[in-house]
C-alpha cells in the first residue's frame, strides 16, 4: 500500500526560553492514517501539534499538507481542524450555531449548512441536539460536539490535543471507540496527542513516542510494545521489569545468573522484561533465584511480586496458574523475551 503523504513535517525546531520545545522533528503521516504523538508532559508533542495547527510559529523547519507548505498561513487559512482538551465550544451560541460557525464563514447555503450539521451530529451520536446550549451538555457530549465541529470543516488533517483526557475512564473508552469508527468511515488523516499510553496503543495506526523534544520511536502499537527501541520507550510503554547487569562476550551477568545476549553489547546494561514474559520453575532448575513476596489476583490474571538479588520483579500469570504459588516460596525465573539497553542511555 502506497498511500499519499498527507502531512509532512521536516526538521521542525521550536525552542522556548525555558529550554523546553522540540528539535529537528521530521515525520510523515499518510492519507487516512491515525498517528499518535505520545510522551510525558513537556516532551514537545503539543508543540508539534500546535505548530501544525498554526498556533505556534516554529523557529525553523517546514510543515507541508498535501505537498504544500502551510508554514506561512495563519490558523484560519490552514486546511486543519483542531479539537482541544477543553473549552472547545462557545457558550453564548447554541450547538447549531457552534457547528455552523465555520460553514457560515465559508458562505455555504443555509439548507446545506442545516443538512451538514444534522449529519455531523448523527455521526457523533447526538442527533437533535441543535438547539441546546453547550452548558446543558455533559463533558463527553461537549467533546462530541467539538469533534463534530472539526469534522464539518472537512480538514485535510484533523488535530486532536488530548481531547478525552478530562473525561472519566469509561467515557474515554467509549469516545475512543467512536473516534476510531469515525476515522475508519471518513478515512480522515488524524494526528492525536496524548500522554496516556493505553489510549495511544488502542487507537493508533502508528505511535510516535517523544521525549525531551525528540522522537524516540515511530512504529505500530504492536512493535512499540514488543520491541521498544530505547530504554525510555521500554519504560514508558506498558509495565516493565528493569534489571541491572553486566554484558561481556555474548552473555549478560545478572547477579549469579547468566543470560545469553548478542556479542556486540558490553559494559553495564539494563535488561528489560515484560511481566507477562517472566517464567518460573522450581528452585532446583537453572535461572534467577527468587522468593515469592506477594500474590495479588487482579481479575483474570494475577500479579506476583518476587524478590531477587537483582531487585523486585513483577510477573503476570493466568489466575489458575498463580494458585500454586504462595508467599515465601523459592522459585527460579527465566525470561521468554527480553530487551537489553546500555545503562548510559537513561
Amino acid at each position: 500500500m502506497t498511500a499519499q503523504v498527507q502531512l509532512s513535517i521536516q526538521k521542525l525546531t521550536k525552542r522556548y526560553k525555558t529550554g523546553e520545545g522540540v528539535t529537528g522533528i521530521s515525520l510523515d503521516i499518510k492519507q487516512g492514517e491515525l498517528v499518535t504523538l505520545l510522551g510525558p508532559s513537556g516532551c514537545g508533542k503539543t508543540t508539534v501539534l500546535r505548530s501544525v495547527g498554526g498556533f505556534l510559529e516554529p523557529d525553523s523547519g517546514d510543515i507541508q499538507i498535501a505537498g504544500k507548505s502551510v508554514l506561512h498561513l495563519p490558523p484560519e487559512k490552514r486546511p486543519t481542524a483542531m479539537v482541544f482538551q477543553s473549552y472547545n465550544l462557545w457558550p453564548h451560541m447554541t450547538v447549531y450555531e457552534n457547528l455552523a460557525f465555520g460553514l457560515k464563514i465559508r458562505k455555504m447555503r443555509k439548507e446545506q449548512i442545516r443538512d451538514a450539521v444534522e449529519r455531523a451530529l448523527q455521526l457523533v451520536r447526538l442527533p437533535g441536539a441543535e438547539q441546546k446550549r453547550p452548558t446543558e451538555l455533559s463533558g463527553g457530549q461537549q467533546q462530541r460536539v467539538a469533534v463534530a465541529r472539526a469534522l464539518l470543516l472537512e480538514p485535510a488533517v484533523l488535530l486532536l490535543d488530548e481531547p478525552f483526557s478530562a473525561l472519566d475512564a469509561k467515557l474515554r473508552n467509549e469516545l475512543r471507540e467512536e473516534l476510531r469508527e469515525i476515522q475508519l468511515s471518513t478515512k480522515l488523516t488524524m494526528m492525536f496527542v496524548t500522554h496516556d499510553q493505553e489510549e495511544a496503543l488502542s487507537l493508533s495506526d502508528r505511535i510516535i513516542v517523544m521525549n525531551r523534544g525528540n522522537i524516540e520511536q515511530s512504529d505500530s502499537p504492536q512493535q512499540i510494545y514488543d520491541t521498544p527501541k530505547s530504554l525510555f520507550v521500554a519504560n514508558f510503554i506498558g509495565r516493565m521489569n528493569m534489571l541491572d547487569g553486566i554484558a561481556e562476550n555474548g552473555s549478560i551477568q545478572i547477579q549469579n545468573w547468566e543470560l545469553h545476549a548478542s556479542p556486540d553489547i558490553s559494559g553495564k546494561v539494563v535488561v528489560a522484561v515484560r511481566p507477562e514474559d517472566v517464567r518460573w520453575k522450581d528452585a532446583s532448575n537453572p535461572g534467577l533465584a527468587a522468593t515469592v513476596k506477594q500474590v495479588m489476583v487482579l481479575g483474570h490474571y494475577a500479579e506476583i511480586t518476587l524478590l531477587t538479588e537483582a531487585g523486585i520483579i513483577r510477573m503476570f500469570l493466568p489466575r489458575e496458574e498463580a494458585l500454586v504459588l504462595s508467599s515465601g516460596q523459592s522459585v527460579s525465573l527465566t525470561f521468554a523475551k527480553h530487551a537489553v539497553y546500555p545503562q548510559s542511555s537513561v
Binding site: 498554526g54 484560519e76 482541544f84 477543553s86 465550544l89 464563514i105 465541529r149
Partner: peptide, 11 residues
C-alpha cells in the same frame, strides 16, 4: 482555546 477554535474554524 475558545478563541483558537474560532481561528481554526476560519475566522
Amino acid at each position: 482555546a475558545q478563541e483558537e477554535a474560532a481561528r481554526d474554524a476560519g475566522a
